[in-house]
């Protein structure tokens, strides 16, 4: 919670309790903060509550206890200071690329013409010029995910929340998308919180990797990434990169082992 921190997660705990089911503690006492313009990646085993945390930050879910603050203000519901890109394809199939990108703006009350003008800029930024009037089902998976990112950025959020945005893409497309995300980010200078299960992706893209422990999720360690910007593909072979990936992997491996042992006990 430095002076420049734009997002702070303060002792967030989330318990899911359903009728007839035992309580499930998804997050336990999660705290970290993100500086203005910072790119933070969260890695952790599957089921460690990463998506749940992102939903709480976005305001889609209430925390059981603790608080999320954006610019000092407590988050109670979704707002235009945050925008989310979901793991699943969430484009409206009956809207064109342009209308999908304009969607958030229109929901926010912008005039259609203004929304389209802004949307056109972000369509271009996402490298989709010429596809404005295509429907999502006419696009490839990579293009669709670019539309998702463009739609989120179009509302000009202070914080961009990305939940495993490239998980469904093949390895080559994923690599290209990583580079494009960095380009877009360096242009827009928004703050980014990225969830990924790919350690290389986390290290390559971020300024800091937050490693989650297995369920109940909590922050196990925060690892700064001292690689210079702009990031290049060659850096992936550098000693710093390799040793960082190795370090994160060791932490995760430990968590996975712990989870397996707990499962056997």
């Amino acid at each position: 919670m430095t002076a420049a921190s734009v997002l702070s997660v303060e002792s967030v705990t989330k318990v899911f309790s359903g009728a007839g089911k035992p309580d499930l503690v998804a997050l336990e006492d999660v705290s970290f903060s993100v500086g203005d313009g910072e790119f933070v990646a969260i890695v952790g085993a599957s089921g460690s509550g990463k998506s749940t945390l992102l939903r709480i930050i976005d305001g889609l879910l209430p925390a059981t206890s603790g608080a999320v603050r954006v610019g000092g203000e407590a988050v109670t519901h979704p707002g235009f200071d945050r925008a989310m890109v979901f793991q699943q394809d969430c484009l409206l199939p009956w809207k064109t690329v342009l209308d999908n990108v304009a969607y958030g703006l229109v929901i926010g009350g912008a005039k259609i013409a203004d929304a389209h003008e802004t949307a056109r800029r972000f369509v271009q930024m996402a490298g989709l010029t010429g596809f404005e009037h295509h429907y999502p089902h006419q696009l490839s998976g990579g293009m669709r995910q670019r539309v998702n990112v463009a739609r989120a950025l179009a509302v000009n959020p202070r914080i961009l929340l990305l939940d495993e945005p490239f998980a469904a893409l093949d390895a080559q497309t994923r690599e290209i998308m990583q580079g494009e995300l960095l380009n877009i980010w360096s242009e827009s200078r928004t703050t980014v919180v990225l969830i990924t299960h790919q350690i290389e992706e986390a290290v390559f893209l971020s300024d800091r990797v937050v490693v989650f422990s297995a369920r109940p999720g909590s922050v196990r360690e925060e690892i700064p990434v001292p690689l210079p910007r702009p990031r290049t593909m060659e850096m992936k072979r550098s000693e710093v990169f390799v040793s960082l990936v190795d370090r994160v992997w060791r932490l995760i491996e430990h968590e996975v082992r712990k989870a397996v042992e707990e499962g056997m006990a």
């Binding site: 889609l60 979704p78 925008a83 979901f86 394809d89 969430c90 409206l92 929901i107 926010g108 509302v155």
Partner: peptide, 16 residues
Amino acid sequence: RHLVEAARSFNASYWQ
């Protein structure tokens, strides 16, 4: 429900 959640994340009202 993913589409609904995406709309909600833009703070869409029930009617929207």
